Simulated scan of single mutants.
Amino acid sequence: MSAIPVPVNAQVLEDLYGANPPLDTFRLRSLNVDWRGPTITLRVDLSSFPASVPPEWEEHGVDTVQCHLQFLAVEELSLTEWNPPVHRAALAVDLQDGRRRMRVRVTGAGVGLGFTSSDSVLVGHVSAFRARETATTTTIVMCSRDGSTPCASRPSPPRRRRPSMDDSDWTALVDSAEAITDLYATPPSLDGGACEVFYVQIDERGTSVTLGFDTNVLPSRPPAAWAEKAYNTVEFHLKFTGVEGLRIAGWDAGARHATVGLRRVAGATGLVVTLEGPGSFLGFTASTSGVTRVRPYLASAAP
């Protein structure tokens, strides 16, 4: 029988809504897939606003509550449709008798998501916002529930298309890879050996998919600012926008060793992107792409 999940830390929402927080329907903003766990985190706007809110929320005129819903020990992941914006998604779970697991379905116009997970759901990052549209930007006023993020306006910059490059390697296929090519004479490959995928972020903003990579291949031309840092790993993010045809069929811990493939779309300027490994597959096309973040850090030794 289908039901609405009850978070193990439901108190964070019950303080706002009482005994029955509105988790059955929401606007789905993004989903994050992490091989650790494996874990899926949904970023959602709840379908109703509380009658009583903290004073700082009332002062800033916010009208929508946003939170994260995290599911652990994910198996049998399937994403058959992703066509944002997903203004109204329905969440339902079927408990699996005697296994402390449940089957989760998120469905609606623009999304078809299903997986099994442990029967524990965690709520996090509860905040509220109101949006103001202008000609070139969207300003979101955010207020966190716990006060860790004060109310503030954050304008998003206008999107810019990056120039294309030649086809010699993956850094030449993406529109902007200077953050990597400035560091490496020979960039690490994406074949699952030199680089590990640690997460996938799927977001309605720019209809984007961001892949997070770790590599222990250290740069041949590190910047001077890294000279005093102790590090043995480099993290970088590869972001794709204008995503279409996104599909996921399976995701497990082995996804971190998956091979990421990039190839040009015949007769077009975009890319076909695939992530393939035992038990894991992700694929889509994207109109633009680029490296968005690079940082060094000291990773602990594997146990």
Rank of each mutant, 00 (worst) to 15 (best):
M1G: 11
S2H: 08
V12G: 07
V12M: 11
E14N: 05
D15E: 07
D15P: 10
A19H: 05
L23A: 02
L23H: 09
T25K: 01
L28W: 02
R29A: 01
R29G: 00
L31I: 12
N32E: 14
N32Y: 14
T39M: 06
I40D: 05
T41F: 07
R43E: 02
V44L: 02
S48P: 01
F49L: 03
P54A: 08
H60S: 03
V62P: 10
V65D: 11
C67N: 03
C67W: 12
C67R: 03
A73E: 14
L77V: 09
L79H: 03
L79N: 06
T80E: 14
P84F: 06
A89T: 04
D94Y: 11
R99Q: 15
R101M: 15
R103D: 12
R103P: 04
V106H: 02
G110D: 06
G112H: 06
G114L: 02
T116Y: 06
L122C: 05
H125L: 04
V126H: 05
V126Y: 00
S127Q: 14
T134D: 09
T138N: 07
T139A: 04
R145I: 10
R145F: 12
D146A: 11
G147P: 02
S148K: 11
A152F: 11
P157I: 10
R162T: 15
S168N: 13
S168I: 14
D169C: 09
D175P: 05
S176P: 08
E178V: 11
A179N: 15
I180M: 10
P187V: 12
S189V: 05
L190H: 02
F198R: 10
V200P: 01
V200G: 04
Q201D: 09
I202D: 01
I202T: 07
I202W: 08
I202Q: 09
E204T: 07
S208C: 11
G212S: 14
G212C: 07
G212W: 05
F213V: 04
S220Q: 15
W226T: 13
N232L: 15
V234Y: 08
K239S: 06
K239Y: 11
V243M: 09
R247V: 12
G254D: 04
G254V: 00
A258Q: 00
T259N: 03
V260C: 12
R263S: 10
R264A: 14
R264H: 02
A268G: 05
V273Q: 08
T274V: 04
E276F: 00
P278H: 07
G283P: 10
F284L: 10
F284H: 02
T285K: 11
S289C: 08
G290Y: 12
V291Q: 08
Y297N: 11
A299R: 12
A302G: 08
A302H: 07
P303S: 06
